[in-house]
Design a protein around this nucleic acid. Sequence first.
DNA 1: CGCGCTGCTATACGGTCGTACAACAACAGC
DNA 2: GCTGTTGTTGTACGACCGTATAGCAGCGCG
Lengths: 226, 226
Amino acid sequence: MARERQAPKFRRAPPSIRREALIEATLASLRKHGHEGLSVRRIGAEAGVSPGLINHHFPSVWTLVAAAYETLSMSLLESIQRRARESDASPRERLRRFYQASFAPALLDPGLFNTWLVFWSMTSHHAQVRAVHDRTYAAYREALESLLGELRRGDGVPRFKPRPAAIALSALLDGLWIEASINPRTFRPAEAVALCEDWTSALCAGAFPSLLAARRSPRPRSPPRC
Amino acid sequence: MARERQAPKFRRAPPSIRREALIEATLASLRKHGHEGLSVRRIGAEAGVSPGLINHHFPSVWTLVAAAYETLSMSLLESIQRRARESDASPRERLRRFYQASFAPALLDPGLFNTWLVFWSMTSHHAQVRAVHDRTYAAYREALESLLGELRRGDGVPRFKPRPAAIALSALLDGLWIEASINPRTFRPAEAVALCEDWTSALCAGAFPSLLAARRSPRPRSPPRC
DNA sequence: CGCGCTGCTATACGGTCGTACAACAACAGC
DNA sequence: GCTGTTGTTGTACGACCGTATAGCAGCGCG
């Protein structure tokens, strides 16, 4: 009997390719199983690979998770930015598209939210993950800051402080995203977009007193009227 | 030799007392160890009790965690409410105190944030925990809605819609609280309070278009001016 | 075709996990 | 003081965890 050519039991891959595949498998495992998915056995199974291979390519699981965190957050930010900046549009319109992209169905997936929770819960105990958070949050805030900066150059828009404005806007976006992810029935995505739009309108109307840049000749801050 | 009276090896307690003690131990364990603290052994050690006792008083760990979630969130809300409503103050002042209490050092503890992450990560998979979230988030939102309702009765304050306003405000508060908990160096607590105060000012100034209640005779909504 | 480099697998080990269950002991009632 | 109830302990079990390590095998290269 002629010896059949056996299908190879596994395929070799150059380290960079394998590392990327493991990162993707990590994201898939976390998305499916949440915190339970954070194990070399689950990730290995997801990647169709033996558990020991993770430790062969990454010094520890934390390094892999940090890489996955960076990959996912940068990918999401880039995706949202692309939708916000596609075609020429006014700064205000770009912000609106940013909001819409932030509350698109793909972003409101419960699996995505659970993945994010795992990343957040690791920032306290692992410096690498914390570093990734600091870096990606800064990138996110700077993206908003850039869009707000373009808005500020428009006619009749007051000279607000971009950085605190971006912080407030990102907090509003995050808070809405979280609640929508936990309980989609609290409000509809369109309502979230409307609330962000309102915030932008108020910003343009100069309705946020402490966000207005300090005047050359400071005048005493007036107390709230209500 | 006279027989010495031995100190009892353990103390019995009526079920209600023991259950409460186990809830407190659960909160302490989660605060100290985050997700790792969610184990009958850790909780039992924290309560000075054998691991098996948890399963004797609670049908499963999820029931215990749901009870701890409810206890903690209601306790925090009550604490913030007490500070907001102590002594007579204007509605605006009460809101300011609510903000200040929300960003007090006790609320910005990393252990508290990690505890919250555990609760959130369980809402997807366990109906009991999800029910607690829905109930306590509703209570939180209604507290804000009540404070905003008092504000709305003031002179010169436009007739905004209380419910969406409370949703937006709670999102802003949550988003700021999360980022302050993850990375305290992004902004100072006073800045977070100022951003919330700004939001309130804008609300009073009628700067949130879609939050204004529909008119008796609706007029076409004007497009954004910037 | 055959050799060798190395990506990869398979196994073993010590640890922690949740749960079940039998035995123990605190304490109230008699 | 004795006894019964039952809150509580201690142990045992199987499953899964991360890591280390020895050896197998895919595949480029001569």
